[in-house]
């Protein structure tokens, strides 16, 4: 199993999104993440990256660093930014049961991150927010977990 770390930095801009998802999708596929799980991973990565561009940098210039590596059982992606301390995973789960008039789109992105990855956690280290997303290298028969 490939134990190499792959690192890439992208400008904290929505315009970087195609390059970001292409980078992660390529590394995940090479690591052995099942093809059926790749769209969900790309969705989780988009939601995380857009969240960082919007809230960590608020339109200011900055860089977001992506680090990928594999363990025998999983593909691991760490997304790092130097914005103010913020754990996006602490955003409450949206109430998905209310009528349309009361529905808000906020919070859905983080909900998707939790749903479409096998594990997600956040830590603050060296003045950086580090979001870690993990995809199990299983046989593809398991369904994304309930969130």
């Amino acid at each position: 199993m490939d134990q190499d770390y792959s690192t890439m930095r992208f400008p904290a801009s929505i315009n970087s999104l195609p390059a970001v998802t292409a980078f992660v999708e390529g590394k995940a596929a090479a690591a052995g993440v099942m093809p059926a799980k790749l769209p969900g991973l790309c969705l989780a990565v988009e939601e995380a990256f857009v969240n960082i561009c919007t809230y960590a940098f608020s339109g200011h210039e900055g860089q977001v660093e992506f680090i990928c590596f594999s363990t025998p059982d999983a593909f691991v992606l760490e997304i790092m930014d130097s914005g103010p301390e913020f754990d996006m995973l602490s955003v409450p789960r949206p109430d998905t049961s209310v009528e349309m008039e009361q529905r808000e789109a906020g919070g859905l992105g983080v909900y998707f991150i939790r749903h479409f990855t096998d594990h997600s956690d956040w830590r603050r280290e060296n003045n950086k927010n580090i979001l870690r997303l993990t995809m199990d290298l299983d046989d593809g028969t398991s369904h994304p977990k309930e969130t």
Partner: peptide
């Protein structure tokens, strides 16, 4: 549509509210 994220859902929700 091969892929839709929360940004797309936000558009659909806003359109539905405006039409309603």
């Amino acid at each position: 549509v091969e892929y839709i994220s929360s940004a797309g859902l936000r558009v659909i929700l806003a359109a539905a509210k405006a039409l309603k």
